[in-house]
């Protein structure tokens, strides 16, 4: 940040419901770190605060909506994406961000994730991946690495984990990136780009869960994990998303970067274009022309 842009209070402060602090997240949890990035991204993206809505589901990350001083909706487990879809379609002037965890978005909410990407609904999904259901004590998720220990995979996970950037890219998402909680500057930039991107944008954030996932898998504390991200991340912008997943318990390479940034008409644009072509003057255009 340049001298001219200097700030004298915590830049995250104006976005927080400070009367609710301290928050529920554990010591060293990466969620708060990403909220710092989000606050800075909101400052930079130029979107008026009153036109920015945030939707979370049920999980540790789902609590983000409750701490952000925006129009914020904490809905049911797995369903923030369809709620966000309704918000965005009903008022196209809103910028709508879904901020939730891997269990919420990819497991119970997986059907909504792929369909929103396919429809190219103009929302941003920020999905924190801590590889476990942390809020309920550490059950196995569809993102859990092979052999990782979870309370419902006590002898180690043996299902293939999702490669989520590849999944959403294959469904038609127009912006797909992955960063870790270590990459705060890049993550902030990605959030700005995603929020300003027209269409379905998706950011996977690999994030430490010291209390549950790291402890149970004997991986150390948050600092150890952030150092692991630092040492093992490889930035590959435009990487073939089919190659960014990992099957190893602990990958040698965590491929991060901006994988997809393409143009495609979003849901509302496609609807307006198509229906006005078919119905002519009889069609009532939806949103600003």
């Amino acid at each position: 940040m340049s001298v001219e842009e200097k700030v004298k209070e915590n830049p995250v402060e104006e976005f927080l419901r400070t009367d609710r602090l301290p928050h529920v997240w554990c010591q060293g949890c990466g969620i708060g770190t990403t909220v710092n990035c989000f606050a800075r991204a909101v400052r930079k993206c130029g979107i008026p605060l009153e036109k920015l809505a945030i939707v979370s589901g049920i999980c540790c990350t789902g609590r983000v909506a409750g701490y952000l001083k925006l129009d914020s909706f904490h809905v049911t487990h797995g369903r923030p994406i369809p709620f966000a879809t309704g918000l965005k379609l009903a008022n196209p002037e809103l910028t709508v961000v879904v901020y939730s965890g891997d269990g919420d978005i990819a497991a119970i909410g997986g059907n909504h994730l792929i369909n929103a990407a396919r429809r190219n609904v103009d929302i941003t999904v920020i999905m924190l991946n801590n590889f476990t259901y942390a809020m309920t004590g550490g059950q196995v998720t569809p993102t859990a690495p092979y052999e990782s220990i979870n309370t419902t995979a006590p002898y180690g996970a043996y299902e293939k984990p999702f490669n989520l950037p590849h999944l959403v890219a294959s469904c038609g998402a127009v912006y797909v990136a992955r960063w870790t909680a270590y990459h705060v500057v890049q993550l902030t930039k990605a959030m700005v780009e995603a929020m300003n991107k027209k269409g379905f944008s998706f950011i996977e954030v690999i994030s430490p869960c010291p209390t549950i996932f790291l402890r149970r898998n004997r991986l150390g504390d948050a600092i150890a994990e952030l150092k692991f991200y630092k040492e093992h991340s490889v930035i590959k912008h435009g990487a073939d998303t089919s190659e960014v997943g990992w099957d190893e318990t602990r990958p040698d390479e965590i491929i991060v970067g901006k994988f997809v940034d393409v143009e495609r008409p979003d849901f509302i644009e496609a609807m307006n274009t198509h229906l006005s072509k078919r119905l002519g003057d009889k069609y009532v255009w939806w949103g600003k022309k």
Binding site: K6, V12, E13, W25, Q27, G32, T33, V184
Partner: peptide, 16 residues
Amino acid sequence: CGMYCPDFAIYGYREK
């Protein structure tokens, strides 16, 4: 420091 802090407990800035 402010970017990393998970608890919004620290922040830095530049002062002329």
